[in-house]
Structure formats: C-alpha cells, structure tokens
C-alpha cells in the first residue's frame, strides 16, 4: 500500500517534470522569429478595408468567407504550408496598434498591405505605420524581409501615376511604383518630425528607435537595408502569387 502510494507520487512527479520540460521547450520557441506578420492600416468602412484578414483567409482556404469580414478585434493566426513546411502567419488588426509592438519581435517576414486604389488619400497613415514597423529596434538591424503588397490592383484605375507629383522615372510597370512614390514622400516628412518630436513622458523604457535611411539625403526605399519587394495583386480576385513567392523565399 505504502509502496504503491509512493510509486504514484513518483510517477506524478516525473509527469510534472516532463510537462514542465515540454512547456519550457515550447516557451523558448516563442521568442524566436517564427511568424510572418500581415500589417497595415485599418479600413475606413464597408469595402474600404485594406484586406489583411482577407489575405490570411485566402492563404488558408483559397477562398473568401461566404458572409464576408468585419474589423478584427484580435490577432488572427493560421498555420500555412509553404513548400511542405508549416509557417505561422499572423494578421495584426489595424485598429489595435498596441498589439504590433510586441509581435514585431516574432516576425521573420512582414507583409505590409496597402490599398492601392486609395493610396492617394491614405498614404500618410500607411507611411506612419510603415515607419513604426521599420524603425522598431531590430527590424532593420536584422534585415527582416518585407513585402509591400499593393492590394486591389483590379481597381487601380483610380491610382494612375500622377505626372504633377513628379513620378516620371518609373522603372517598373504597375501600381507598385505609384505606391512607392507616395510612401517615400510621406516617409520623408514623418522621418524628419519623428527625430524632432517632443520627448515622451514615461517613455524611458521605450525601445530605441532607429533612424530611417540616411540623414543627409532625401529618403528613398533603397536606403533601407532590408530586402523590400513591391508587388501588386488582388486578394479578392485570388491573385496573390507575389505573397506566396515571398513566403516561400522567407521560409526557405
């Protein structure tokens, strides 16, 4: 009787230790960069969403939910198989910017979503988020690759390159270039005021922010050490090849 009780106790102890070990093993994996993040601003109403959750659903199910989508309240996360390997993809709600900061430490690749049909009106907000993402401590230091995915290329007529804005030397075709120029212009402004911003109260523990690009020069995306890819497509039309290519490259 005594023996069996102590035997049980021993067994229980072993079980607890094993569980703890499993937990620690699982926990240590958490700090690694093991996820691809989908980041972007929040939409502005019906059919005006940028399409982050839609992209995740498209990757996961190769189709859109029958009854549509609403703004996300929490991070959506899914395991997606790329070249036979599972990859964690996380969609960060644009309405909850406070979530982004912690998740960036887990990013091994970032898909930055832009609504190319509305880039003219929202370039500022897009650029602000992009600036935050890029200047977070380690994103540039560790050269985390980034895809700037210009969604809704099917509606692109509304964002044709505007000559008056000096977009003449476009090297590639497609809306990626217009988006690039808009973002560069806004990032230039944001960068200068980010450096000169007033101090933050209680910000002593804030992560050190990096300077984007070179101080002496007008900002260009070429100044960013990360591998940046601009590509366009349409989630709704199922045209997300650049995303799949990016994921394959990142996980390889």
């Amino acid at each position: 009787m005594d023996l069996s009780t102590s035997g049980f106790a021993l067994l229980a102890l072993v079980a607890v230790i094993v569980l703890l070990l499993i937990y620690i093993a699982a926990g240590s994996g958490k700090s690694k960069r093991n996820a691809i993040l989908i980041v972007g601003r929040s939409g502005t109403g019906e059919n005006k969403s940028v399409g982050k959750t839609a992209l995740l659903k498209q990757l996961k199910n190769s189709e859109q939910p029958k009854y549509g989508l609403l703004p996300s309240l929490v991070v959506n996360s899914a395991e997606i198989t790329v070249n036979g390997k599972p990859v964690r993809v996380m969609d960060v709600p644009g309405m909850v910017p406070s979530l982004l900061e912690d998740l960036l430490d887990r990013a091994k690749g970032i898909i930055f979503m832009v609504d190319s049909s509305e880039i003219r009106d929202h370039a500022r907000r897009d650029a602000e988020i992009l600036h935050d993402v890029l200047t977070q401590g380690s994103i540039m230091k560790e050269k985390i690759p980034m895809l700037i995915f210009c969604n809704k290329s099917d509606l692109i007529a509304s964002s044709s390159p505007d000559v008056s804005l000096g977009i003449r030397d476009l090297r590639r075709e497609g809306c990626g270039d217009a988006v690039k120029t808009y973002l560069e212009r806004e990032l230039q402004l944001i960068r200068s005021s980010a450096v000169n911003a007033v101090e933050t109260a209680g910000g002593t523990k804030q992560k050190q922010k990096e300077f984007l690009g070179f101080e002496e020069e007008v900002f260009r995306f070429e100044h960013v050490p990360n591998k940046l890819t601009f590509a366009s497509g349409s989630v709704i039309k199922g045209n997300i090849d650049p995303v799949q290519k990016f994921m394959a490259e990142t996980t390889a």
Binding site: G45, E46, T53, Y67, L70, P71, N76
Partner: peptide
C-alpha cells in the same frame, strides 16, 4: 477575428453608408 460566420439581412437599410455592423 472579424470573420462573419452567418448573417441574415431581412430589410433594406436606408440612409446608412457602410455597414452598421462594421
């Protein structure tokens, strides 16, 4: 996460731009 599982629309809404659920 924002996915609509089921939705029933029974009447047409007037004077509302965008979706009230949004």
């Amino acid at each position: 996460g924002g996915m609509v599982l089921w939705m029933g629309k029974f009447e047409q809404l007037t004077k509302v731009s965008g979706s009230p659920m949004d």
